[in-house]
Amino acid sequence: MVVFDKPKSLSPVPFHYCPGCTHGIVHRLVAEVLDELDLCGKAVGIAPVGCSVFAYNYFECDMIEAAHGRAPAVATGVKRTHPDNIVFTYQGDGDLAAIGTAETVHVGARGENITIIFINNCIYGMTGGQMAPTTMPGQVTTTSPYGRDRRIQGSPIRVCEMLSTLDGVAYAERVAVNTVPNIKKAKAAIKKAFQNQVDKKGLSIVEVLSTCPTNWGMTPEQALEWVKTDMIPFYPLGVYKDADVKDLNPTSTKEVTE
């Protein structure tokens, strides 16, 4: 009897991620959810630019690699022309909250019925440890070598809090993958975010507090600890929005007539 196996929605190839990086955990959670909800055959995933740029190699569903920050717009194009597909983006903090901020905010404003998996690790990983829009106050990166100074580099963006103010956002939850109980909660959140799409509820986003031991200059264990001691207090976990855009009162008053 098989008690532990690779999810069918995960491709049989090794990940390229650094030791201790939690991208692999989140990939697996997404794949398990696609399996459990039987969505892989309908799914179209949009990969970002960033460490998870190769995500198109890792999922067994159709995959599109977007330009930096543009995944929500690409997802919109797929979902609006193929409403029966299950469309998700997988994006990091630079992609989603810096260069792609407009796309992120407006995909929420439009209430696009898609799922966003947002990896927040407070740093640019692929380019080698530069300051991200979510880099914490005082955090040292290669482009904030004296620590992020709010007077100079401004303050971090709390994405779930910001997006939860938009009517079109159905569901926004922040989770972490630093402990086993948290990983279980993260999976439940990701599952809900996909189920919401099946139920046509509107935009669902799960923000996952993740690690980057390589660029944080920590061991994997220290990195997991730093999520607990530093990140979670600044980025509190929990559900920020749980609604259904179908409940919104449409204000279109004119019938479409030939």
Binding site: G77, H82, E103, H106
Partner: peptide
């Protein structure tokens, strides 16, 4: 469908998604 995007940048990327899915 006619969708007004938030920018030309976004509009061309919606095209990217629509074209990639075969429309």
């Amino acid at each position: 469908l006619c969708l007004q995007a938030e920018s030309e940048v976004s509009a061309i990327n919606m095209i990217m998604g629509a074209a990639a899915s075969g429309s």
